[in-house]
Design a protein around this nucleic acid. Structure first.
Lengths: 223, 223
DNA sequence: CTCACAGTTATTCAAGCGTATAACAAAATC
DNA sequence: GATTTTGTTATACGCTTGAATAACTGTGAG
């Protein structure tokens, strides 16, 4: 019985690997499948190591949730271009890979179902949610301002809620039943819906790689 | 040590009580909190009885999921009135109690997070989802037909996806952060959004109790 | 009133859980 | 190259889990 070989990793590496392993476990087998032993196996270490990096299993789950939220929102930050282009990219980014896929939904839903149970997760959730919606609210205000519209704060807030709702709902549909939709059907629907909501057409963004993909998408369905 | 008293219930009663207890456990403590012992305690029986009515824990969870889906969709069925009134009620019903509250979301999310893991749940989910969207698709077709519009099937399908997305997304926001919204803000937003999507105003439904409540809602926010 | 059935309880079991801790060894330090 | 440090393994513990089974008892049939 010889002891198994092991590699000493840096703290950053190890924590990253362990959190990735946690997310893999959750997406493959649900929260119930994310046991310390499963996580350790997936990360190629032994179970005890998890508690060397995380004070408890709850803590690693909290850290994992932060990563999930970051992945769902980071692509929609730091967009550039005109307000209209940024809105356009925002829509596209939120409804295509890697934000919209079934793994994202599995992870998101697993944590959401515990948000109302676990106060620590609730805090993490609320911060992420508010920051996302405020970002969208600012973006919409910029778009309307660029159109020369004076925007009443209450109307802008309602608009943000509506647009957020459309994006959330379409994201949900895409994740849940992606195979029922053609590639970019949802993006196309989102564009027409949001154009209807804000009362203005939305121009295509500047021609980056991403946006070329996006325009291809539109060409197919948006006619 | 005397044996505890017990009451012999009919099969229907017992199954109903056990499923309700299961839902209570899930909404209060997540899927992880729904152990056979917790469910039994909540239902006022002992753990062994669960396996007398359900072949395994998985089976009671599947039955519970069916109930959750039914609760989320049943209120939106068998609406009456003109197509426009039915659409109006449909929107209202889906964004107010008892469909939209944090308990509904807890239950929904808990099961959704297992849909991609458990094939039995996936089947139950898919059936519920398709039936809901087909209902909405028919409803929208009726509304547009009543407006004298000839409806291309593809356009109607896209419209149904969009409206479904708006409703899902707003439902989600209302459940997640209900306290951030005033009573009927979401209903009001849904009306303007969906009016924009279908290109027609939506009349208020016939004056039932429900609809009076609904109009009060609109009066506050929609003007 | 008796009896047999079946709904229910009580108890047990093996497996898996999160956690604690001691032994070990890879790498950094001197 | 010896020594220290600490990342990592290995093992054990108490507890909970889903499940199986035996014992009990409420209840309807006769």
């Amino acid at each position: 019985m010889s002891r198994r070989d092991f590699h000493r990793a840096t703290e950053a590496e190890r924590r990253h690997d362990l959190i990735e392993a946690t997310l893999d476990c959750i997406s493959e087998a649900g929260l119930q499948g994310a046991t310390v032993r499963q996580i350790a196996t997936k990360a190629g270490v032994t179970a005890g190591l998890i508690r060397h990096y995380f004070a408890s299993k709850d803590v690693i789950l909290q850290e994992a949730y932060k990563v999930v939220i970051a992945r769902l929102t980071e692509k929609a930050k730091n967009l550039d271009g005109t307000p209209e282009e940024r809105l356009s990219s925002f829509i596209f980014v939120n409804l295509t890979e890697p934000v919209a896929n079934s793994r994202s939904l599995s992870l998101w839903a697993a944590f959401i179902s515990r948000v109302s149970v676990d106060p620590a997760l609730a805090t993490i959730h609320r911060e992420g949610y508010l920051s996302f919606r405020q970002e969208l609210e600012q973006l919409l205000a910029d778009v309307l301002a660029a159109k020369g519209e004076s925007v009443h704060p209450a109307r802008n807030r309602a608009l943000a809620i509506a647009v957020n709702g459309v994006l959330d709902g379409l994201w949900l549909e895409g994740c849940l039943a992606g195979e029922l939709f053609e590639e970019s059907e949802l993006v196309s629907i989102a564009f027409s819906s949001i154009e209807a909501l804000i009362g203005h057409p939305i121009k295509a963004p500047a021609p980056t790689d991403m946006d070329r993909e996006y325009r291809d998408a539109l060409r197919i369905h948006h006619r």
